[in-house]
Simulated assay, not measured.
Amino acid sequence: MKGFRVGCVLLASMASAGPVLAQERPPVCAAPVALTGDLAAWASPGDRTAATDVAGLAAATLAIGEAARVKLLPTPAVRYPLRPEKPGGSVSFGGLVRLHVTAPGTYRIALGSGAWIDLVAGGKAVGSTAHGHGPDCSGIRKMVDFPLTPGDYTLQIAANGADAITVLAVKLP
């Protein structure tokens, strides 16, 4: 009888874990979905190389509305203006990208992986207002929204598992 009760408890716990496990699995995609509107640029990224420090940001600029496949560097080679909250280890990749904002508003940074990002201006991190996932089967894994005013910002990318990441910055309506 004791074995029967243990089996019932095990089955019940597995059944209750089912929906949680199902939510964590990415959807099975037959083909990528075509994005429209502000995210349409995701489909045709240009190439960029991330800067290793703030002195190299001019060559690592990403225009608002433009997607780029950004070549990253081993984390130990990057000198972040602010220590990332999640810097990653010596085998992770990161880098710096400059964003130039001309109009105030909420801006969304879309990423092709779960890398950690910080947006820095005036030596301080800009607080995010929302976090989410991209549309299913789009290739966008993570989206983070920031309230921005005109000026230059440093996008710090940290703790990426690969040496490249697709990034898109858009102004929300």
Rank of each mutant, 00 (worst) to 15 (best):
V6N: 07
G7F: 13
C8H: 05
V9Y: 11
L10F: 14
L10T: 14
S16I: 03
G18R: 01
G18A: 14
V20C: 00
L21Y: 09
L21N: 08
L21M: 11
P26T: 08
P26W: 05
C29M: 10
A30E: 13
A31P: 01
P32M: 04
A34M: 09
T36C: 08
T36R: 14
T36P: 09
T36K: 14
L39D: 13
A40M: 11
A41C: 12
A41T: 08
W42P: 00
W42M: 03
W42F: 08
S44T: 15
P45N: 03
P45T: 02
D47G: 11
D47C: 07
D47L: 13
R48P: 00
R48V: 08
R48N: 06
A51Q: 03
D53V: 10
V54E: 15
G56V: 06
L57Y: 10
A58Q: 12
A59R: 12
A60K: 00
A60V: 05
L62H: 02
L62I: 08
A63T: 08
G65V: 06
E66V: 10
A68K: 00
R69T: 05
R69W: 01
L73F: 14
L73H: 15
P76T: 11
A77L: 13
R79T: 15
P81T: 11
L82R: 14
E85Y: 03
E85C: 00
G88W: 00
S92I: 04
F93N: 01
F93Y: 05
G94K: 04
G95R: 04
V97Y: 01
R98H: 12
R98E: 15
L99V: 07
L99H: 04
V101A: 11
V101T: 13
T102S: 14
A103M: 10
A103D: 15
P104G: 12
G105R: 02
T106K: 10
Y107Q: 05
R108D: 00
A110K: 00
A110F: 03
L111T: 00
G112Q: 00
G112H: 00
G114N: 15
G114A: 14
G114H: 13
G114P: 06
A115M: 04
A115C: 06
W116R: 01
W116A: 03
D118V: 01
L119F: 09
L119H: 12
L119R: 10
V120P: 03
A121H: 15
G122A: 09
